[in-house]
């Protein structure tokens, strides 16, 4: 049995199955993160004390003097670097796709490998951020802002990890498909690329709304 249009495009829709599939999945992800953002807006606008850290709390957490708002406890430099890492990984993954279409498998491996390194770097910086919060006794339960921060960035990090697994597969054992079914492999790289850009896109919105505002 052969499922039609797994590799070639269906003439009337102009799409192969996985491409439509990944976009549908991303549409659903838009609704997931949309609901999270919408909840963030509601919680923030609904509670006048959402952002303000009381003097007592700041003192108890040994943050007196330089923290008055909950977002002040977050590290803008680390998040800034992380933003750049993700943006760069978006460029590298699109480069790996372009290299494949130029039939340059070596360059594909290179760019895909760089993407994986970026993803690992992002997770490393994230781990530093989280552990520094924990070491200051800042947990999701500490305040609703931190709850939102940990939930949103945590879910985003889970998406990064999920992507990382697929990227590693395509870089390693999955790349054997380049020999047997080259077009199908190009499609796979394209679809995982679409997902990866979406993860980048979510971060582009998380960064200012959590760290800067």
């Amino acid at each position: 049995m052969q499922i039609p249009y797994t590799i070639e495009e269906r003439p009337d829709t102009g799409l192969y199955n996985a491409k439509l599939g990944i976009w549908l999945f991303l549409a659903s992800e838009v609704m997931l993160f949309g609901a999270l953002f919408s909840s963030y807006v509601l919680l923030r606008t609904g509670d006048p004390g959402f952002m303000t850290m009381s003097h007592d709390v700041a003192e108890a957490l040994h943050l007196e003097g330089h923290a008055h708002r909950w977002s002040d406890v977050l590290s803008v430099p680390l998040a800034f670097v992380n933003t750049l890492v993700l943006i760069f990984s978006s460029v590298t993954i699109v480069m790996s796709w372009a290299s494949l279409r130029l039939k340059d498998f070596g360059k594909f491996r290179l760019w895909m490998g760089l993407t994986i390194l970026c993803a690992l770097g992002f997770m490393g910086i994230k781990a530093i951020e989280y552990s520094s919060k924990f070491s200051h006794h800042l947990y999701p339960e500490t305040s609703n802002f931190l709850g939102v921060y940990f939930t949103l960035t945590g879910l985003h990090a889970l998406h990064v990890i999920g992507g990382l697994i697929v990227l590693a597969y395509l870089w390693g054992p999955g790349s054997k498909m380049w020999k047997s079914q080259p077009q199908r492999f190009v499609n796979r790289v394209e679809t995982v690329g679409l997902y990866w850009h979406f993860v980048d896109l979510v971060w582009i919105f998380l960064f200012p709304t959590l760290y800067l505002l």
């Binding site: 549409a27 659903s28 992800e29 609704m31 997931l32 949309g34 609901a35 999270l36 909840s39 939930t151």
Partner: peptide
């Protein structure tokens, strides 16, 4: 199902 379930997933996580 595709577009209405994710908000409940968000709520469930919360």
């Amino acid at each position: 199902l595709l577009l209405a379930f994710p908000p409940l997933e968000a709520a469930g996580i919360f």
